[in-house]
Amino acid sequence: MKQIVPLFKREFLGYFRSPIAYVFLIVFLVVSAGLTFYLGRFFESRVASLETFFNLQPWIYTFFIAAVGMRLWSEERRSGTWELLLTLPIRTWEAVLGKFLAGWAFIALGIALTFPLLLTVAYLGNPDWGPLWTGYMGSMLMAGSFLAVCSFTSAITKNQVISFVISVVINLGLVFLGWSVFTELMSFLPLSWVDGLSNFSYTTHFVSFTRGLIVFKDLIFFLSLTFFSLLLTVIVLEH
């Protein structure tokens, strides 16, 4: 367990060894804020909440987290360093967890840097703080699940592009299942089926967080999706 600390440190600082990290953070913030203001009509809604911001997050995460997560293992596989890493006295699950936590921390930093939006709603109106905090909490949890899926897809290939594409497909699928457009499209199916399908969606489980509710089954959804994706990563790496 102690071995996770140096690995986490190396991985987390590793993001800042290249300019990509800064580019990523800036683009992420610009896109998050930009979409909230323009697509989400933040001002026109005249509501002091971040609901539009949160609603857009699953879509943004699909691409941005795939960009962070695509290199987690595929880069190590391509350069052969995974052989070095996995022959150090560290268990595979520790290595998987260490890398995942570092990536998650990096994304959490990106999410935390959206705080000017919080300040904006606080300045413009008198927001209900409950949904804001639970929204951020749910957002972090959801980001973890997105990243864990990327961890798995990056473990199955040496090629970062393939890893990116597969994780986008999987994560987009998991976003789609809960999207109203999709559920309407599926309305020819029995309602219970549609409900069942949308139960596998990020959006379905995220929405209560944005309304100020922490629902146990939503917590379980994100945590178990993260857990199983990481478990699959371990299994893939150990063959």
């Binding site: 600390v5 140096p6 190396r10 060894r17 052969g80 360093t81 022959t87 150090l88 560290i90």
Partner: peptide
């Protein structure tokens, strides 16, 4: 693994780290 020192084929190392950073990482792990 604690008892073994291993140099894999082609000596893969984390290229973006400095020699010192890399060896510190190995020492800590």
């Amino acid at each position: 693994k604690e008892k073994i020192g291993y140099l894999p084929e082609n000596g893969p190392v984390y290229g973006e780290m400095t020699v010192q950073e890399f060896l510190r990482f190995i020492a800590e792990i």
